[in-house]
Design a protein around this nucleic acid. Sequence first.
DNA 1: CACGGCCTCCGTCAAAAGGGGGACAGGTGA
DNA 2: TCACCTGTCCCCCTTTTGACGGAGGCCGTG
Lengths: 225, 225
Amino acid sequence: MTIRIIVADDQALVRSGFAMILGNENDIDIVAEAGTGNQAIALTKIHKPDIVLMDIRMPEMDGLLATEKIVQDPELAARVLVLTTFDPDEYIYRALQAGASGFLLKDTPPVELISAVRTIAGGGALLAPSITKRLIGSFAKRGFIDERIAKRLERLTNRERAVLTAVAQGLSNQEVASELFVEVATVKTHISSILSKLGLRDRTQAVIFAYESGLVETGTTSHGY
Amino acid sequence: MTIRIIVADDQALVRSGFAMILGNENDIDIVAEAGTGNQAIALTKIHKPDIVLMDIRMPEMDGLLATEKIVQDPELAARVLVLTTFDPDEYIYRALQAGASGFLLKDTPPVELISAVRTIAGGGALLAPSITKRLIGSFAKRGFIDERIAKRLERLTNRERAVLTAVAQGLSNQEVASELFVEVATVKTHISSILSKLGLRDRTQAVIFAYESGLVETGTTSHGY
DNA sequence: CACGGCCTCCGTCAAAAGGGGGACAGGTGA
DNA sequence: TCACCTGTCCCCCTTTTGACGGAGGCCGTG
């Protein structure tokens, strides 16, 4: 089974280079080349490749936006490997959030590029070592969800979890009541029960618990705080 | 410059296997083998290797704890590559938090193990593809700190940030006052100012803001929630 | 069916939080 | 020097929160 690839880069020379490196492998086929983000999307829809090698800096929609659109399209199964010359944190973050399966720098040795393509085609993910390092660093620093804490969530009933979630969005009892279509008295009952079950004192501690347990996560809320 | 390595695994056969694979490379030297976590630490102190290949399951202190001790010892410069048969989330999390530079499964092909060792010796980091995938997933899902939100922290004075931090630990006004050695009235003044400056309504929203802005982070608090 | 858990709602009450004033000392910079 | 910010503290007042006890309806299990 051959791996079908589209190369997206605004520089023709770079495209040819990648095509040459990968084209020599007999289990890899370059099915198309794109010079812009729009082209990349269009060609992906036509050719349905397994992998798109995506440059970030491109005219007419950059590679990150194109990545997002390709990954989110339910009709496409393409995985995206982002290749770029620079690696500022922001690019990496956006690329990973956009759903890229890999992130390599353009100075990666050809052999590694080829093995990266195979890894990603096989469902894996791959990052440049320097990036992996940073990712680990920020991941370790950020901390993980403590399983023991998360388990205490199980003591709550569904309704209580719903109330806690609402409280952790910064809603007052009155607002939670409106949100859940019940009376304020009911919300109060639930909150008392939550605090009691979790051994907390007030709603601020409940909010902290919600974050620490993973019930709510940073960066996912829509409120304008 | 040769890369000096210690192999730590409780099974002699496994140790020999790794030693054989790596020993053939002329830029890699196996300087010692350890069968327990304690041995790994002791031998690391003696031989000062560049890298410790660490198994997780070992008698007398497991590999994760040993990793932590080795990485945190300021006199040692060794980097740890964790090698294990299984890859439950918990192991990965703990290993990365312990400060491991890499995490590979034992079914990794010899060639990749060798290149992993070189990568790590060169200051990089390396994870098994399947693990990278999970790491990316949880990283992307967890979300990032919104810069625009973080900037609003700058509007606060130092004292106000201190108060907000305390509030975000779940302390009441009274407790915050004790913590900062001021009167409750002062805490109230600060909080009013915080809410006003950030456009928030009450302390629960302030706690949320503290998390979303990165002022406090999940997994780093010591309270028992 | 009887029991228990869950969800819903009441009333009452005390404590906590928050708003809106004002005041004063120390420091900083125009 | 004077205006301004910061940090400290005070009083008074309203709103919110949370505790406690009670109660009815629904539903699944023994």
